[in-house]
Computed example of a mutant assay.
Amino acid sequence: MPLVRISLRRGKSAQHIAAIRNGIYRAMTESFNVPQNDRFILVHQHDAEEFDYDPNYLDISRTDNLVIIQVACNNTRTVAQKQAFYQRTAELLSKDPGLRPEDVLINLLETGKENWSFGNGVAQYV
């Protein structure tokens, strides 16, 4: 169960935000072997003074349209799967809602399967 947190500057339309959520979920199902309906996505919108980033870190030119995507997931994916996920996410988000690939920052937080409870106080993966 990936748990996705999306952070971006406040002021985007509901359609823009939906396109980001849908693109990330699609990339996860296509390249991360995430099953259908395994969808848990939170969106955090920030005012300008709450959204601090370096516009040129690693010589990548970022704008205020930067979207920071953090995915908590099981530690079971290969490096190739992770790279495919990064690439596919940037590709899908550049198509809809039209983000520049430079403005898509992704961070994975990997954890053991025993660290998840989907409800009822049970660790379903153990």
Rank of each mutant, 00 (worst) to 15 (best):
M1F: 11
M1L: 11
M1H: 14
M1S: 13
L3R: 14
I6G: 10
S7V: 03
R9T: 00
G11F: 11
K12L: 03
K12V: 07
K12D: 01
S13N: 11
A14F: 03
Q15M: 05
H16T: 01
I17C: 04
A19F: 00
I20M: 03
I20G: 01
N22I: 03
N22G: 13
N22V: 04
G23W: 00
Y25F: 14
R26I: 03
R26P: 00
R26T: 07
M28P: 08
T29I: 10
T29A: 05
E30A: 12
S31C: 14
P35W: 13
P35I: 09
Q36I: 12
N37V: 09
I41G: 08
I41K: 07
V43W: 06
V43R: 11
V43A: 08
H44E: 11
Q45R: 14
D47Q: 15
D47E: 15
A48N: 07
A48P: 00
Y53S: 04
P55G: 07
P55H: 06
P55A: 14
N56P: 01
N56G: 09
Y57K: 12
D59A: 14
I60P: 05
S61M: 06
T63C: 06
D64Y: 06
N65K: 09
L66I: 02
L66D: 02
V67N: 01
V67R: 00
I68G: 02
I68S: 07
I68A: 06
Q70M: 08
V71Y: 04
C73A: 06
N75R: 12
R77K: 15
R77S: 06
T78L: 05
T78D: 07
T78A: 07
T78F: 05
V79S: 13
V79E: 11
V79Y: 07
Q81P: 06
K82G: 05
Q83E: 15
F85R: 02
F85L: 15
Q87F: 05
Q87R: 10
Q87M: 03
T89R: 05
T89D: 08
K95M: 03
G98A: 04
P101Q: 11
V104E: 04
V104Q: 04
I106T: 12
I106M: 10
I106G: 06
L109V: 14
T111V: 10
T111P: 00
T111S: 11
G112L: 05
N115Q: 13
F118S: 10
F118H: 09
G119K: 10
G119A: 10
N120T: 12
N120L: 12
G121L: 10
V122A: 11
A123T: 13
Y125V: 08
Y125F: 15
V126L: 15
